[in-house]
């Protein structure tokens, strides 16, 4: 009888350890938090070249993450990339119309993300609007090519 109690205790601890492990994987390893999913709104931006940008890449403003890339698709009308951004709802109607979206790289080999920098126009961007002023991803080969052709000209 006593042995069976120890066994039950062992199994109980085992199950508990498993659940605690899952909580650890959730909170510490994948960085989940118990905040309610934030309200978001969508903005569109067209880029000539998205480089290594992926869905779920960060969208930052002054270095602070304010949203994620929701989808990247080819715009068949303009033949460039249409990127849909989903941003925190508290920024809705607060970004001026001449906000710039640039695809940046964190570090030399890091992931690519979108950096927003605000302008000064009086009209604000609402849900579904398009950011007109965009900067494509920096492609290293193109830079080198430019550099070489300049060097030849000199």
């Amino acid at each position: 009888m006593k042995r069976s109690k120890w066994m039950e205790l062992g199994v109980g601890l085992f199950m508990l350890a498993g659940v605690l492990g899952l909580v650890f994987l959730g909170l510490r390893v994948s960085g989940l938090s118990f905040e309610a999913p934030q309200n978001t709104f969508q903005l569109e931006a067209n880029f000539g070249n998205t480089g290594g940008l992926k869905p779920r890449s960060r969208v930052t403003m002054a270095g602070v993450t304010v949203g994620r890339v929701q989808s990247i698709s080819l715009d068949t009308e303009w033949l460039d990339a249409r990127v849909v951004l989903s941003l925190n709802a508290d920024l809705e109607n607060k970004l001026p119309e001449d906000t710039t979206a640039a695809i940046l790289t964190s570090g030399l080999l890091g992931e690519q993300y979108i950096g927003l920098s605000v302008g000064g126009a009086p009209d604000m961007l609402a849900d579904g609007d398009r950011i007109r002023d965009t900067q494509s991803a920096l492609v290293l080969e193109e830079l080198i090519q430019q550099f070489i052709s300049q060097a030849i000209e000199d």
Binding site: F14, M15, A17, G18, G21, L22, F24, L25, V29
Partner: peptide, 15 residues
């Protein structure tokens, strides 16, 4: 039931 729990333990201890 055991193997998923063991797998979680494996990941946690490995990390």
């Amino acid at each position: 039931v055991s193997l998923p729990l063991l797998t979680i333990g494996f990941s946690v201890v490995g990390i």
